[in-house]
Design a protein around this nucleic acid. Sequence first.
RNA 1: GCACCCGUAGCUCAGUGGAUAGAGCGUCUGCCUCCGGAGCAGAAGGCCACUGGUUCGAGUCCAGUCGGGUGCACCA
Length: 599
Amino acid sequence: MPDANFDSSRSVPTPQAVPLAAYAHDRLRAEATEILAATGLVTRESVTLALPKPSIPADLAFPVFAAAKAAGQNPGDFSQRLADAAVVPEGMLIGAVTAQGGFVNFAVHPAAFAAAVIEEVEAGGAAYGNDKIVGAGQKTVVEFSSPNIARKMHVGHLRSTVIGHSLVKILAALGYDVISDNHLGDWGTQFGTLLAAIDNDHLTPWDDPDPVQSLVEVYARFNSAAKDDPTLMDSARAWFKRLEDGDPWARQTWQRLIDLTLVEFDKTYRRLGVAFDTTHGESYFEPMLAPVVQEALDKKVAHIEPGGAVVVEFGEESRLPSCLLRKTDGATLYQTRDAATCLYRWREYAPVRNIYVVGAEQKLHFQQVFEIVRRMGYKEIADRSIHIAFGAIVDAGGQRFSMRKGTAIFLEEVLDEAVTRARALMQASMAEGRTEITPEEVDSVSEMLGIGAVIYADLYQGPERGIKFDWDKILANEGNTGAYLQYTHARCRSILRKALPAPGAETLLLVSPEEQAVLKQLSRLPHAIREAGANFAPSTVADWTYNLAKAFNDFYHSCPVLKAETSGLREARLALVAAVAQGLKNGLGLLGIGAPERM
RNA sequence: GCACCCGUAGCUCAGUGGAUAGAGCGUCUGCCUCCGGAGCAGAAGGCCACUGGUUCGAGUCCAGUCGGGUGCACCA
């Protein structure tokens, strides 16, 4: 079943036991396993550890149910026997072992843990949380954003762009050699439409003040006219065929459309901090299309129908509807181009993962493409190809935004509005003297905040659900929002401007519940990044970052830093603040969001 | 009709077989003589759509039902 293959490829094997980049979090797990195994009551292999819920006063837990059953004892007794038999040697990060119900609970040694976590955040710096062992330099392709030439990016492109961008960063943090590719929609019948309109009406959109806007309007006009006059679509198809056949005017005009659109896209990408390693639009694969169709025919994956169309039938058992690789008029389709793209990447990179960040409405399309590639004999790349499908952005009434109907909200509009709101808020803070922001910074910081709000509003939740577009929600600045995280970072930096932590602080003094809560959250960044990479889920990192900010703000309100009770504690807390600032910056960075010094 | 996604607090969402299901928004109550109030603390709010099954244990896995969405060859 293609579905089974598709889904199984979604989880990347995670490294066994403790990777070489062993963080305090990893050492805790290793220690717990050793302590349990040393009792002689359970084997190392039978130990699986879980993170207890926050309400449980423990840092790591071993649910004994399965082991107790194997030993023929009831879980409560067995966990007690394990806890009684457990010996915690000196110098461990684990401080105590207790039994509670069917669980053996491990608590950290607060002082040792504090010193270890602060030390590794300081040592890691911007790379804290990374684990290059996981990816070990293996190639991974991430295709994302992929807007269409002669269109404006709208809110739909936002999702692909920010999810893809974050995935690239997360996978790179895990040591993968990532190739980010912008698969531009620069080919297809839509260009026939534009060429037909430009030719018919002798248009010169490149001379207009907003050329892309003109093209969008031309396209919309043509489509509505085509409803009354079906011959218009025929002329569009004919023009696309001419483009494919290399007609000089068609080619030249097409290239102009690409160039003037890319100027606009680049502005948006710069604002979002997004860059690509390759921008292989669909046209790039054009020379590979005929050979792919031929290969599919040779391998009996596809056949020619009487009219001349090339068809792939998947058969009853696969339950996939059949699709075309070549139209009756000889032109190719989306499936043809994506099959060629997939094979190109296999030959060029042989990646361990070939990831497509594309809307959920194209799920069937990718299943078909991957299955075609598999049947052509390229099982490896088919198995390694993954469609990260995200839900559509819809309006308040649940309707999808449509370029053709003119209801689309353009991405630039959203970013501008977000930046405007951020600036207004900051100016209010300035008027009330609640910020240390300087007038010179207002522009750059309001840009960082506005863009951050938009990115975070998308990434804080998983991709599968759709998003109801709501200005107030996307641009919110209280609670679980980008602004909250950025504010917390600015707050840390504000303290650090007043006093820098001296080296050699006695970080083992950080044993209060609030301090320990911050340290525990800090220690879990490596875990969060690995999980995000294994599940292709930036929201895991977003969630970690939010919880770090929350833990820090709680600490901030309970524990004075600059006016701590003793100078030793003051130094230790300064070190903690510096570590939190680093952690927030790293987490935000993985999401593609900037961390401001002041706001 | 077939396939896929979603269904958890009034709303928006976390929760990858483990303990008393968690956040944010909104509502109500407190906290600026103190490192930035875009903050903190507290309260109220749940038949995790429904019915069965697997399991020591199910919001989580399986089957079915009901709701919402998406897709199903000459667009992309």
